[in-house]
């Protein structure tokens, strides 16, 4: 249970960081902007943690209301992870391609993997929830999953609207 919770936490943190990068990508005309991207990622991590803390509080409240929910949540987390970890693994592979010295390998990993995977993120998030509900069909599970993925999916747009660059 602890391992699954840690894995979900790490996935949420990684997803928030990438959302932070995407939120500002294509908004700053500078050539050297590492610090700018780092700041954007730091802000996203902060907001990502706000979402995580609110989720933990929400789950605690639900567990207090439905004491038998814990086992179902543990099982559903397992099933969510089956989908999310596969997606995460492929994303990490693509990101590895992006660190290669060859410009062509970097370009291919962007065109063939990172681009399509960005588009697939929301459907994959929903698939993870559906997969969990398939195994654990319970309204409270849907509620917990929704509390987690809806704000995570909206994080990029929220950050983009909040932190528009001026130039």
């Amino acid at each position: 249970m602890v391992l699954n919770a840690v894995l979900l936490y790490l996935l949420a943190v990684a997803d928030a960081a990438l959302s932070g990068y995407r939120a500002v990508a294509g908004t700053n005309p500078r050539i050297k902007k590492r610090a700018f991207h780092q700041q954007a990622i730091a802000r996203a991590l902060l907001w990502g943690h706000v979402v995580i803390v609110l989720n933990v509080l929400g789950i605690m409240l639900l567990l207090w209301l439905f004491p038998n929910l814990l086992q179902d949540l543990i099982r559903s987390a397992q099933h969510c992870l089956e989908v999310y970890l596969l997606y995460a693994l492929l994303t990490v592979l693509a990101l590895l391609g992006f660190t290669m010295p060859s410009r062509d390998v970097r370009s291919i990993s962007i065109v063939l993997i990172l681009g399509p995977f960005t588009l697939l993120r929301a459907p994959v998030a929903v698939c993870g929830v559906l997969w969990a509900l398939w195994h654990v069909p319970r309204a409270e599970v849907l509620l917990v999953c929704g509390m987690a993925i809806v704000p995570m999916l909206l994080l990029e747009t929220f950050l983009w609207r909040r932190y528009k660059t001026s130039y």
């Binding site: 294509g26 908004t27 700053n28 005309p29 050539i31 410009r103 970097r106 370009s107 962007i110 130039y167």
Partner: peptide, 20 residues
Amino acid sequence: LLRSHIEMQRLSEEFAHGSR
């Protein structure tokens, strides 16, 4: 136009066009 061109810069950045 300016917003679009700044967004387009991302394409050149990702394809390492400057170094090419």
